[in-house]
Structures are given as structure tokens and as C-alpha cells.
Amino acid sequence: MNTLTFIFYFFMLTAAASATGILLSRNVFKAALMLLVCLLSIAALYVLSFAEFVAITQILVYAGGVLVVIIFGIMLTSKLSGKPLQVGHTNIFAAVLSGILLFALLANFITDDVFAVPQHAVETQGALQTIGTNFMTAYSLPFEIAGILLLAALIGAAAITSFMKSKKV
């Protein structure tokens, strides 16, 4: 077992453990922090899977953006209610049942197939460049739409929250 493999398994376990932590945690804030851990480990796994650009995006956008927004939301709601953000659980049986069932099913499929990864050296140097080219050529339309979507989401989110404020006033 080399170092790389160790790191790989380490991050896998971290991701799995933090995900489990989210499931078990009753505190929203802790859960958000564990999600952060989970996202970072996944970013590390991306790096190990030769997807550096995705990993960076993951860290920047998710860890830096989304999660901050979420934590901000958590703070806001707990401030509004003034109660500690303890969360109850429902549907435990149904959730465990469907989770285990789905996992068993997926694991079954995964085990059945053999995914032969090509053994020749993976070209990683051109990846970033290729992605950039792809955005501008083959994926230009989705890229533009994604941009519009982002804009729309931003305006929408701002609008929804501003209604709240205007109503509150």
C-alpha cells in the first residue's frame, strides 16, 4: 500500500464518516460543518481522480460559497426563533429502509460490473485547457444558460428575501 492509496482511502473514509455524521447529528450547525468536511474530502478525491479543476471549483464554490450561505441561513433562522437548532427525526424506519435498499441495489450493480480503467498514463496536463476549450465550443450553449441561471438565481434569492424584509417593515 503506497501513500497515495492510503490518502485515497483516508479521504474516502473521512467523506463517509462525515456523511454519516450529518445523518446522525441533531444539530444543524454541526451538520453543516460536517458537510464542509465531507465536501473537502470529496475535493481531495477529485484531485486523486485527476480532476483538479473540479476539485478547485468544489472548494471555491461549495466550501466557500454554498456552505457559507447555508451557515448564514442557519444563523438567521436560529436568530429568528431564538432556540438552539436541535432537529427532530422522523420516518426513521422508512429512511433506513429505503437507504439500505437503495444502497444494496446500487452496490449490487457496482459489484456485478467490472470497470476496467485504461492502464495507460492519463493525460492530465491538458485537462484544464480542454475544459476551457469545451466551455467555449461544445458546451457553449449550456455554459451561457448556466450563466443566466446563476443570474436568475441570484436575483431571485435576493428578491425573495427582500420581500420578507419589505413585509417585515
Binding site: M12, A15, A16, A19, T20, I22, L23, V28, A31, C38, I42, L45, I70, G73, I74, T77, L85, V87, G88, H89, T90, N91, I92, A94, A95, V96, S98, G99, I100, L102, F103, L106, A107, I110
Partner: peptide, 21 residues
């Protein structure tokens, strides 16, 4: 791992009595 994460996420969605969770 992905399957596990997905199922965990699913369970979280179903279990938690909180929209943010």
C-alpha cells in the same frame, strides 16, 4: 462511496425535521 453518500443524503432528506437539514 458515491452510492453510500447518495443513500446517506437521501436518508438525511427523509429523516430530518428541518428544511435546512
Amino acid at each position: 462511496l458515491a452510492a453510500f453518500l447518495f443513500c446517506t443524503g437521501l436518508a438525511v432528506v427523509m429523516v430530518k425535521r428541518n428544511t435546512i437539514m
